[in-house]
């Protein structure tokens, strides 16, 4: 783990418990997961028990203990997307990427996860790659992924 990068994240925040969540978010963004040493270091920095840090880190789905891909793919499983075939979309993505939900490709480029609503129901079924939104993408999946692989 890059200790300097962690130090740079921590020093932005005052040593107050209320900054636990934003610190964890920054660590997740920088390292694409929460390295154990980073959690221990965060606990020490904020002077909160490690148990509390672990509790918060395991509570939120946005945090991960295994590295996510550089381009995390989120497939919406909300009601509108569900009705418009989100599960089929997910299966197709799994096939195209040769990847199952919760896993990361061996080259570390993509990871696949499901979310409960992306708030873009009009585009159902919808998924995002990083922060790019793709809606009603039936039949264009291979093309979209190809472009994402190269960019």
């Amino acid at each position: 783990m890059d200790r300097d990068a962690l130090g740079a994240i921590l020093e932005v925040y005052d040593r107050e418990e209320r900054f636990l969540l934003p610190i964890l978010q920054d660590i997740q963004e920088r390292f694409r997961h929460l390295p154990r040493e980073a959690l221990t270091e965060t606990a020490r920095y904020l002077a909160v028990p490690e148990s509390r840090v672990f509790a918060v880190a395991t509570f939120y789905k946005a945090f991960s203990f295994t590295p996510k891909g550089r381009k995390p793919i989120k497939v919406c499983m909300g009601t509108a997307c569900h009705l418009r075939g989100a599960s089929t979309l997910l299966e197709e993505l799994e096939r195209e990427l040769d990847l199952s939900v919760g896993k990361t490709t061996s080259d570390g480029q993509f990871s696949l996860e499901t979310v409960n609503c992306l708030g873009a129901c009009a585009l159902a079924p919808v998924f995002t790659v990083e922060d790019r939104v793709y809606g009603k993408a039936e039949g264009r999946l291979a093309e979209i992924l190809e472009r994402e692989r190269k960019s």
């Binding site: 959690l39 606990a43 028990p49 490690e50 148990s51 840090v53 672990f54 509790a55 395991t58 509570f59």
Partner: peptide, 20 residues
């Protein structure tokens, strides 16, 4: 004491335990 245990995970998986 030291606050060495807490609830980790959530929903059905929620359980009291030490860190990690």
């Amino acid at each position: 004491a030291t606050g060495c245990i807490a609830f980790s995970f959530r929903g059905w998986a929620r359980r009291v335990e030490g860190p990690f």
